[in-house]
Design a binder for these strands. Structure first.
Length: 280
DNA sequence: GTTTAACCCTGCACGC
DNA sequence: TGCGTGCAGGGTTAAA
């Protein structure tokens, strides 16, 4: 799940679960459920801070979701590769790989499902949130007001790294993963191996616009749901941005702009898709 | 400073 | 049909 999917989830939660009070919090007994709450030694450390609490606000920091509780605590969730939240109720069967279930006093529940358990949940106090290492180092957010193109130009000039790696680096810019970084580079007409401090002003501007437009459009279409991956929203509905993908997952297929076959390359263990003609 | 490899998990497609 | 391999939208760490 990348920024657009996390943002869609944030908005859904804001509409649908904010204001509800947690009656019971359950962490399943499996080894992987414990892996999900790995920062807590015991289940109770996690569940006792949730039970009886009302959910008051949901914010996003990069790919992290922060659900604020009326106690001042914050429930932090990262979805990893396969994590998701699903709304349910007592009549809906618990899916395999469901690790946490919050049941609401008002009825219904919220489930955290994650087959690969790269995802994580933990509760911390609002005061301590600034001390969480992963959150401290999260870089500028593309949707933030302070993400302006002169700022971006400065940040790029400070580094001498290849663009694909840099866009994926959450300490450089937050929210982009393997899919959207490829889409952004295509939209900007830049190759994955361009070095950040050699971009012209015009290229920086193109890249800046590509980031904003790609992210905005993906949120509008409620995220990307690929055939083999199963991102769905809070209510189980897939996104629609997959129909807009220009390069990701299209190896060998003709570029939508120039008809050249889309190529792939391995960049830090991940497959990167690009058009050899349109990107330089 | 930047890049690479290994690792953390499960599920699925693919080739033999 | 069965089995091994590689790959998948995440991130960290140590070493080169």
């Amino acid at each position: 799940m990348e920024l657009p999917e996390v943002e869609v989830m944030r908005r859904d939660l804001e509409k649908d679960v904010v204001g509800r009070r947690v009656k019971t919090a359950e962490v399943k007994t499996s080894r992987n459920a414990m892996r999900v709450i790995r920062r807590h030694g015991k289940r109770k450390e996690f569940t006792s801070r949730l039970e009886g609490r009302k959910l008051s606000k949901v914010e996003r920091r990069g790919k992290y979701l922060l659900v604020h509780l009326d106690s001042g605590d914050v429930l932090v969730t990262h979805f990893g590769m396969s994590g998701q939240f699903q709304r349910g109720n007592g009549r809906v069967a618990i899916e395999p790989h469901t690790h946490v279930v919050l049941t609401f006093q008002q009825g219904g529940d919220l489930r955290f499902i994650d087959p690969r358990t790269f995802g994580e949940m933990f509760v911390t106090s609002a005061d301590e949130i600034g001390k969480v290492k992963e959150l401290q180092h999260i870089a500028i957010d593309p949707l933030d007001q302070v993400f302006t193109w002169p700022t971006f130009q400065y940040l790029l000039a400070e580094r001498g790294a290849k663009m694909k790696q840099l866009l994926m680096d959450q300490k450089f810019i937050s929210g982009l993963g393997n899919i959207y970084s490829d889409e952004v580079l295509f939209a900007a007409g830049l190759r994955y191996d361009r070095v950040s401090d050699t971009l012209s002003s015009q290229e920086v501007r193109r890249l800046y616009r590509a980031i904003q437009e790609t992210i905005q459009e993906a949120i509008k279409l409620r995220g990307t749901t690929l055939d083999d991956e199963a991102y769905v929203d809070l209510f189980g509905k897939p996104g629609e941005y997959q129909g807009e993908l220009k390069v990701y997952g299209r190896e060998g297929e003709p570029c939508r702009r120039c008809r050249s076959p889309i190529e792939t390359v391995k960049v830090s263990q991940r497959t990167s898709y690009f058009c050899p003609q349109c990107q330089s």
